[in-house]
Structure formats: C-alpha cells, structure tokens
C-alpha cells in the first residue's frame, strides 16, 4: 500500500511539472482527486484493509490527499501569477505622452496684489471700503485741499465728464467720503482699492486706467512713526521679510507732512542693481499725515484728531514684484501672460 502511495506521489510530481495551464491543472485535479481519481480510488480500498492497519492507512491517505491539494493549489497560484504577469505586459503605456489638460482658471495678477494688500490690512483691523469711479471735482480735488487752479492738479490731468464730474484720478476721494460718512466723527481705519483714470497716453509706464489702494487712519495721537510701522509691515509682506523702508520728504496737497516711501531693493538687497537704478532703494508709494484742511473739510477737529494716509499702486507693485516691463500687459490680457501667475507665490 505504501508503495502504491509513493507511486502516486511520484506520478503526481511528474504530471504537475508538465502542467502549463489552469485547464490542464484542473484535469489533473480530477485525475487524482476526482470521483474516479487515483487517490479517491485508494480510499475505496479502505474496506479491504485489515482492521489493525486501517488507522495507519487512513492517516497516510489523508496525508497524501492534503499534500496533493497543497501541491495543486500552489501550482494554481503560480500559474495565475504567470497569467496576470502576461496580461500586465500587454498593458504597458507611454508615460511620457501629455497629461490631460485640466481646466482651471486664474486670478489676474493685479487682483492678486490687491487681495494680498487687503489681507494685510484687514488683519490689522482695517475695513475695505469703496467709492465711485465717476467722482465729483469736490471729492476728487477740492476736499483734498486741491482748490481749482492749484498747480498740483497738473500732476493728475483728468478725464472730465462735465465741469464738475470726472473719472477719479486717485482713490483719495474715498478718504474724504469715509470721513464725511462717519457721523460720530470717530476713529477710522480703512483701505480703499479701485480703478483710477488719468489723461495719459498709454505706453510702457503710463496707463490711462490703473489701480490704486488708499489707506487712511484717523485717531487721536497718530504720528509718522505709526505710518512707518504700518508701511514696514506692508513692505515686508509684499517684498520679503528682510525689506526695510525709507522716508523721504515730498509734497502732496492732502498731506502735511508728505512722505515718499522707498523700499530696500528686493533684487540686490540694497547694494545697487539696474532694478533700483543702482541706489539700493525703490520708490513704492506716497503718504503723509492727513492735512488739517482735509480733516476740517470733513468735519474732524484737527486739534483732536490726526491721521495718516497713503496711496499705493498695485500696477507698480506687481510690475516690480513679478518683473513686468510694460504696464499695458495687465490690460491686454494675453492668456500666456495670465497663465504665468497661475501658481502659488513661492520665492520665500
């Protein structure tokens, strides 16, 4: 009997080696373990086995059954794996072909800059307010200490609609509007972004339409030091943590003292390069302490309140920040240009 079992074992091993497909393996399983299989037939011999050998024979029989099952299953796994491998081989692709163009848009670089500036100030408790683009001469000029015939009006040649109405040449009228609208004549902290218009022919550095953000703080004991500290935060946010700012005296009719603000060159760090015209500094905005005539004109007592105001040009900031040479690029909207801004800022 034992001999018979080892014969079957040997036979199984030989047959298994010849099996190449799952079908053949199935045939083999039937041949050995099927109803009329070789091993099944062995168990039918059980009844002829003397009682005292039945136990030994039984365990031998079970062992060969298990062994056969294991061998067949193992072979099955191997065959299946081979088959899958073959299938995968046929599924190879060219990973270097272009990916599908997903449709995502982008925010205009000017708006990105405006959003960034707004965020800085909103985080410091400023409100974002807006005013009309079609403005009165009163708010655009007169309330800002620029009476008719004032020579400083020259710097802002404007588009008039009637004798008294014009397209605002600056966002500063929103200052006066905000102060006027404050019924209690209490503290103010606002920034006012928006479009402005000047009677300039469009070229690489001039645009008849551009953007501005006005900032205004009115409170008790506001000083130039407060202005400087505030603008330092802005400069660092826009141009990097290492930036410093520098105050230079200037003249704007609606501020006194008036201050021109330079930022240390973000390209060369201040040693001098073509961007900063070898000076190490780049002019970024105009500012100053709100002129008492402006405060008075809007119902504020300049003896009680002081304030600072500043006006920054997102067009200029974006040009500096991103190295844009021509201001018209913002308004032509070449999509290849816009695509360049469709990613996170980086660079920090």
């Amino acid at each position: 009997m034992q001999k018979k079992i080892s014969e079957i074992k040997e036979q199984l091993q030989n047959r298994l080696n010849q099996v190449n497909t799952l079908n053949e393996l199935n045939d083999l399983r039937v041949e050995f373990l099927g109803k009329k299989g070789l091993i099944t037939e062995l168990s039918s011999m059980m009844k002829d086995i003397p009682f005292e050998e039945k136990k030994t024979f039984g365990s031998l029989l079970n062992a060969i059954k298990d062994e056969t099952n294991d061998l067949i299953n193992h072979k099955k796994e191997t065959l299946e794996m081979d088959e899958l491998q073959k299938k995968l081989e046929t599924e190879s692709i060219d990973v270097t072909l272009p990916g599908t163009k997903l449709t995502v848009g982008g925010i205009h670089p000017l708006i990105r800059v405006i959003d960034e500036i707004e965020e800085v100030f909103v985080s410091m408790g400023y409100d974002v307010v807006e005013g009309p683009e079609i403005e009165t001469d009163l708010y655009n000029f007169e309330k800002l200490n620029l009476p008719k015939g004032h020579p400083a009006r020259d710097a802002q040649d404007s588009f008039y609609i009637t004798d008294e109405m014009l397209l605002r040449s600056q966002t500063s009228p929103v200052q006066a509007r905000t102060m006027d609208a404050n019924i209690e004549k209490g503290p103010i902290r606002v920034i006012c972004p928006g479009k402005v218009y000047r009677r300039d022919d469009d070229d690489a550095t001039h645009s008849h339409q551009f953007t501005q953000i006005e900032g205004l703080v009115v409170d008790k004991d506001i000083s130039l030091a407060d202005l400087k500290g505030t603008l330092e935060i802005l400069a660092k946010k826009l141009f990097g943590e290492e930036r410093e700012i520098r105050f230079r005296p200037s003249f704007f009719p609606f501020t006194e003292p008036s201050i021109e603000v330079d930022v240390s060159c973000f390209k060369c760090g201040g040693v001098g390069c073509p961007i900063c015209k070898e000076t190490g500094w780049i002019e970024i905005l105009g500012s100053g302490m709100v002129h008492p005539n402006v405060l008075k004109g809007c119902g504020y007592d300049p003896e009680k309140y002081t304030g600072f105001a500043f006006g920054i040009g997102p067009d200029r900031v974006a040009m500096l920040k991103y190295g844009i040479q021509d201001v018209r690029s913002f308004y032509t909207n070449d999509l290849r240009f816009l695509e360049d801004f469709n990613r996170v800022e980086g660079g920090e």
Partner: peptide, 25 residues
C-alpha cells in the same frame, strides 16, 4: 523741522488704537 532733521530718524511703530475686526463690505 522733520525734513531738515531727517525722516530716517523716525522709528516705525504700530498705532495704539482699540482692537477691532477688519471687514470687507
């Protein structure tokens, strides 16, 4: 007085004002 003395002497600080939340319209 400020311009002759030199504005570079101004040391920046932040306004000391009551805290409030900044808002968008």
């Amino acid at each position: 007085i400020g311009r002759i003395y030199g504005y570079h002497h101004v040391l920046g600080k932040l306004p000391i004002v009551p805290m409030k939340q900044g808002t968008y319209a």
